[in-house]
Simulated assay, not measured.
Amino acid sequence: MDVAIGIVNWNTWTLLEPCLRSLTEGTKGVSAQIIVVDNGSADGSAANVRTRFPEVMLIANEANVGFARGTNQAYAMAKGRYFLLLNPDTVARPGAVASMARFLDETPAAAGVTCRLVNPDGSFQRIYTRLPAWRYVLAVHTVCRAFRPNNKFAHEFYMVDDPFDRAMAVEQPSASCLMIRRALFPGPVLLDERFPILFNDTDLYRRIHDRGLRFFFSPAGEVLHHRGGGGVGQMGDDGIIDYLICLVRYYRKHEGWAAAAFLWCLFTAGSVLILLKGLGEVMLGAKTIAWLRHESKRRFRLARCRERFSYPAGITPAVPYRPAMPEGTQ
């Protein structure tokens, strides 16, 4: 088996169906195993996969266990030399999967590879960034950016000046379509489940980076990506708060407690400034009391995150991992 493809789905059947259909052409040239993990969808996703795609291995969870655990469930069942994380809101162009597998065959130094992701209108998606080092966090995720939104470090973080017209190393590719060498992670666990939705991919990239290995971007293959159609896109208004909380957790794991505490202080101070500014706008009639109440609740969640980053470092899942068996097996 060349490639095992893991797709974690939650209430996105209208996107998952064309994704699965596209893999008929997308996997031409390689032998592929397709695994769909359904996280308790209420839109009939599991039943539809079972009846319309009988060749697909289905793992139907009773509840939404998160992207990280769902991916680990698929990874535990994978048999290919390579494992492809694929979002349900993608459509693989013909030969896309084979092109990524071929790149890894020809580039032994690559830990993994992503391909060219495009919007529905065909334009290129720039969703590749660098790892969140201190200079980038300060420049992008704190009040510093309010004073210089187009600063040098923000440009570096988002790789604004990189052409992406050739194969190149990328610190943080998009996990919407990412192929990894399974030999690098021989056990049943790929992602740290203490990052259920956000930053599980960033944590993976950091672990690879710390081992002296690199991920690559290759323009050879192409995948259409309906950005925001998957789990992260369904997070709603609190997405930015969850992002900052997980960034603090990421720093706790990789940089230590003191670094995480300092980052939390920066975010909390920024929240205070935002609320004070909002209060002034409420007094001037530019914003409503309802907005201020809602924003205060969101920012209080961020302030309370100090209680959530006191766990010890490591990649062992917070709950002992037992891979769910796919339907039809004992």
Rank of each mutant, 00 (worst) to 15 (best):
residue 248 V to P: 00
residue 227 R to E: 14
residue 1 M to H: 13
residue 34 I to F: 02
residue 267 F to D: 10
residue 238 D to A: 09
residue 179 M to L: 13
residue 175 A to P: 07
residue 254 H to N: 14
residue 3 V to Q: 03
residue 11 N to T: 08
residue 51 T to M: 01
residue 266 L to A: 08
residue 262 F to V: 12
residue 212 G to T: 12
residue 290 A to Y: 02
residue 107 T to V: 05
residue 90 T to P: 01
residue 327 E to D: 13
residue 229 G to N: 05
residue 105 D to A: 06
residue 150 N to T: 09
residue 268 T to E: 13
residue 1 M to V: 14
residue 116 R to P: 05
residue 130 R to C: 14
residue 20 L to C: 06
residue 54 P to K: 03
residue 32 A to C: 05
residue 158 Y to V: 11
residue 308 R to A: 11
residue 124 F to P: 00
residue 252 R to D: 14
residue 242 D to I: 00
residue 63 A to K: 10
residue 160 V to W: 10
residue 283 M to D: 00
residue 246 C to N: 14
residue 267 F to K: 00
residue 218 S to P: 08
residue 228 G to S: 08
residue 33 Q to Y: 01
residue 94 P to W: 01
residue 97 V to D: 07
residue 183 A to S: 15
residue 127 I to V: 11
residue 68 A to S: 14
residue 266 L to R: 02
residue 81 R to W: 07
residue 140 V to D: 08
residue 262 F to E: 15
residue 204 L to M: 10
residue 29 G to V: 11
residue 136 Y to R: 02
residue 159 M to I: 06
residue 231 G to P: 07
residue 39 N to W: 01
residue 133 A to D: 15
residue 94 P to S: 05
residue 301 R to S: 12
residue 29 G to Y: 07
residue 296 S to V: 03
residue 205 Y to M: 12
residue 286 A to W: 11
residue 214 R to A: 14
residue 314 G to A: 03
residue 182 R to Q: 13
residue 145 R to M: 13
residue 159 M to L: 15
residue 71 T to H: 10
residue 161 D to H: 08
residue 302 L to D: 11
residue 119 N to E: 11
residue 50 R to I: 05
residue 185 F to R: 11
residue 252 R to I: 12
residue 254 H to A: 08
residue 291 W to C: 04
residue 186 P to Q: 09
residue 62 E to K: 04
residue 61 N to E: 15
residue 21 R to E: 15
residue 219 P to N: 08
residue 129 T to K: 10
residue 91 V to M: 06
residue 197 I to L: 01
